[in-house]
């Protein structure tokens, strides 16, 4: 018998082990839901899968009587636009700031302390300031996401830039490279895979800030809907929405990982 630490499961076993908890969770839920509904058919706490399906079908297929829109898709679209704008701005900002402070000691001395302090401000504490300063519209929600994750991305990129071996910078200079050429040709391309990784890691926080902003001030969006129907204890809507958000988050993470491997085949063996 091998030691446990040396036992590596086969692909089939791995798949089975990975899916098992999901199946168990589903079974436990269905059992509990059935038991509660048998006792009280009007129970709202643990709706059956059919009830959830019906609720989402209503929201996704039938135009809302009030706005004429397909609520589910409208919510998804609004949330995604906010999330992706916020993340894109944060990524761009974080990349530029992180790369420059990581590569140039002068800029590091000037901006790194400020960046460290800013990254320690809890973003949600700033939300009221954003509402006061730029209103309750889209801009404040996107800004919250940006403020929430840009410092993290910037610091991650700064650290990755500093970790690129000095030998490469010296080598580039002995080949005649200027500061700008080193930034553009040596550092930036090597930082891109790290940027994608940083965005993947910060998407979770991005969703958090999105839902928080939508819960407080919005007229549509996935987070808005969840908090709206909470008043009616509509678990048949909340649970599918949470699963939908989780699925979207998973897809983004998976696609970014795929993109990283496609774009940067060299990044498996770092620091040649």
């Amino acid at each position: 018998m091998k030691k446990l630490i040396n036992y590596t499961p086969s692909t089939a076993t791995r798949l089975f082990l990975g899916l098992l908890p999901f199946a168990l969770l589903l079974l436990v839920y269905m059992g509990a839901s059935e038991a509660r509904l048998a006792e009280n058919p009007n129970d709202r706490l643990l709706p059956s899968l059919t009830q959830m399906g019906d609720a989402i079908e209503r929201l996704a297929m039938e135009p809302s009587k009030r706005t004429g829109e397909l609520t589910f898709w409208q919510d998804t679209q609004s949330s995604l636009i906010r999330l992706l704008s916020g993340v894109a701005i944060a990524a761009l900002f974080g990349l530029v700031l992180g790369l420059l402070t990581g590569a140039l000691p002068v800029l590091n001395a000037w901006l790194a302390p400020l960046l460290t302090v800013i990254s320690l401000i809890p973003p949600l504490a700033v939300l009221p300031i954003l509402f006061i300063a730029i209103g309750l519209g889209e801009a404040s929600k996107i800004t919250l996401i940006t403020i929430g994750i840009a410092p993290f991305i910037a610091r991650d990129i700064q650290r990755s830039t500093q970790q690129i071996p000095t030998e490469q910078l010296v080598k580039a200079q002995t080949l005649g490279a200027s500061t700008l050429q080193i930034l553009m040709r040596v550092l930036l391309p090597q930082i891109m895979p790290r940027l994608i990784d940083a965005v993947r890691l910060s998407l979770g926080a991005g969703w958090l800030f999105l839902i928080a902003a939508e819960a407080i001030s919005s007229t549509d969006g996935l987070g808005y809907r969840i908090f709206l129907v909470r008043r009616y204890m509509s678990m048949d809507i909340i649970l599918p929405y949470v699963m939908w958000i989780t699925l979207l988050a998973f897809l983004f993470d998976y696609l970014l990982g795929l993109l990283n491997r496609r774009l940067h085949p060299w990044s498996e063996g770092t620091n040649a």
Partner: peptide, 20 residues
């Protein structure tokens, strides 16, 4: 007081660009 193109260098490691 800084590296320049008239003096080439080969280090023991890390002196090629891994992304090219």
């Amino acid at each position: 007081n800084e590296p320049g193109p008239d003096r080439g260098i080969v280090f023991q490691q890390y002196s090629v660009f891994p992304h090219m």
